[in-house]
Design a protein around this nucleic acid. Structure first.
Lengths: 170, 170
DNA sequence: ATATATTGGATATATTTTATCCTTGATATT
DNA sequence: AATATCAAGGATAAAATATATCCAATATAT
C-alpha cells in the first residue's frame, strides 16, 4: 500500500507557490520543469488542488496557479486528501457477517461496530490528526532554511524570470 | 490508496485463532469457510503470517494453524506489516533533486532530509504507533463481548466440530 | 485576432492487487 | 508401506488501480 506519487508532487508544488510574492502565479509548465515532472500529468493534480480550494487558477496568458490561502491555513491533510482522496486506508467489508453462521445471527448481533474496524480506524485517526496539525508553513520553514545561499539565490533568480502577477480574482 | 483486503482477512483469522483452546489448530479450509473467503488466496495470507512468526503451521492430517504467541504479545502493527509489507505509505523520491537547478547544487545542499519527507514520516509514525499499542488481545475482548449468547454458542459448537489438537512443535 | 493558459473528458499504458493452480514435502492414520 | 490430508511456495492469470497522454472547449491578456 502506498500513497499516490501525486501527493509528493502536490506537496512540492504548493511549497514552491508558498514562496512566491503575494498575488504572483506560476504556470504548470514552470512547476513541472522546476521539479522535472510530466507537465500533462502534473496538470491533473493541480486541478485537484484547485477543486479543493487550496490553490487558485488564473487562465490565459500570464496566468498560472497561486495559493488561495495563507500557508499557515493549509494543512498537509488537505493536500493529501485533495490528491489521494478521502477514502479510509482500511475498508471494513464486514466479513464478520459473511460466514455460514452469520446468516443465523439475530438482528442485534451486529449493531455494535466491528472491533477490528474500530481499532484500525483509531490508528488512521492518529495519522490524519498528525497530518492536520502540520501546515504548509511548517514545511516551508524547513524547506528553505537549509539550502546553501548560492543555491537559494539561483532558485530565486530562476523563479523571478518565470513568475507572473495577475489581479486577484474575488 | 488503501490497505490490502488481506489485512482484514488476516486480522479476523488471527482473532478466531486467539479464541481457540491452547495447542488447537484450524486448517485454511475452515478459516475460509467461516469467513466466506477464497481458500486458496487466504492460504497466501496465512503463509505470510507464518513467515512473520505470528502464527504457526502444522502440516499433515489434523494439521492447520494456531497462534505462535499470546494475543497480548501480538500487535496489530505486526499483523498489518506481515500482510501488507513494511514499505512506508509515503515514498520520498527526492524530487527536490530532479529539476534543472538541482544539478548545479553544492554537495551539501541535500545533506539535510527533505522537509516534506520528514513531515509525512512523522504522521506515518503516529499511525504505526497507534497500531503498535493495540494488541490482538484488545481486539478479542471487543470481538467476543457483544454477540448474543445464542450466536456465541452456535459459534463454539461449529468451531469445536472442526478444530484439531496437535503436539507443540518447539 | 492571436497566443497562452486552465478545464475536463476520453483514452492508453503500466503497475499492483487479487486470485487460482499445481508440484513438493510433511505427517497422521490405516 | 500406502494413503489421505495438510501447508509451502512458484508460476501464472485476471481484475483493478495508478500513471500518463491527448484533445476540444473556455478564458483572457496583448
Amino acid at each position: 500500500m502506498k500513497l499516490s506519487e501525486g501527493v509528493e508532487w502536490g506537496l512540492h508544488c504548493v511549497s514552491v507557490l508558498a514562496g512566491l510574492p503575494s498575488g504572483a502565479t506560476l504556470p504548470t509548465k514552470t512547476l513541472a520543469e522546476y521539479h522535472g515532472l510530466s507537465e500533462t500529468y502534473l496538470s491533473k493534480h493541480l486541478q485537484a488542488l484547485t477543486n479543493a480550494r487550496i490553490i487558485e487558477s488564473v487562465p490565459g496568458p500570464r496566468g498560472g496557479y497561486r495559493l488561495l490561502r495563507l500557508p499557515e491555513e493549509i494543512t498537509l491533510l488537505e493536500i493529501v486528501e485533495a490528491i489521494d482522496g478521502r477514502e479510509p486506508l482500511f475498508r471494513c467489508t464486514e466479513i464478520r457477517q459473511r460466514g455460514p453462521l452469520a446468516c443465523e445471527a439475530s438482528a442485534q448481533a451486529y449493531r455494535l461496530p466491528c472491533g477490528i474496524h474500530v481499532a484500525m480506524a483509531r490508528a488512521e485517526k492518529a495519522w490524519r490528526e498528525a497530518l492536520k496539525t502540520q501546515t504548509l508553513a511548517d514545511i516551508v520553514n524547513q524547506y528553505t532554511q537549509d539550502v546553501d545561499p548560492q543555491q537559494q539565490q539561483r532558485r530565486n533568480q530562476w523563479m523571478s524570470e518565470r513568475l507572473r502577477s495577475a489581479p486577484k480574482k474575488s
